[in-house]
Amino acid sequence: MDNAVLVNAVLDGAELVKASLCDADGSGASFRGTKFVDTFLINTNFRNADLRNAVFEENSFKVTLDEETKLEGASGTVFGPAVVVEGQASRELSGDALEQWIRSRGGNLRVLTPRGA
């Protein structure tokens, strides 16, 4: 699914196992309850996406999130960093800072450190 345009798509409950969504645009899409397992989420746009109750298991998570991204109930583990857009500003977050940002939005993702880093 590299380079896929998933703007406003509904993929609720999908099981994306060993999938690749590199350079995909999932802005405004609904991924409620989706299982992302060993999925490559590199340069993936999740701005204004609905990731409520999504489950992440050791995914590359170099995504773009914003204040409108819904993360309540999202759980699991990811390898960061992610770009967070707030208003007109953006910043890269990783590790504890990314975990705290996600928790402040109701999610519970643990950000792992890649081996050898």
Score class of each variant (00 low, 15 high):
D2C: 10
E72A: 09
R105N: 10
S75Q: 10
S20G: 15
C22P: 09
N45F: 07
F79N: 01
R91E: 06
A54Y: 11
V85K: 13
E72P: 03
D50I: 05
L16W: 15
V37P: 06
P81L: 03
A9R: 11
G87T: 09
L6Q: 06
R103Y: 08
E86F: 07
L65W: 09
Q100K: 04
F36V: 06
E68P: 03
N59P: 04
A97I: 03
F56Y: 13
S30P: 09
G106Q: 12
E72Y: 10
R52Q: 11
E99N: 00
A19V: 10
D2P: 11
V111R: 05
N8E: 09
S75I: 03
T77P: 05
A82H: 03
V78H: 03
V55T: 12
G73C: 07
A117T: 02
A97F: 00
G107T: 06
R91P: 02
N59C: 13
T77R: 11
V55S: 12
L65Q: 08
L98I: 01
V78R: 03
S30D: 14
E92Q: 06
D96I: 00
Q88I: 00
A97D: 05
V63H: 12
E86N: 09
A9F: 09
P114N: 04
V10S: 11
A74M: 08
V5S: 10
L71R: 06
A117D: 05
A9Q: 08
A117C: 04
E86T: 04
N43L: 07
R105Y: 10
Q100F: 06
F46M: 04
A97K: 02
G106Y: 12
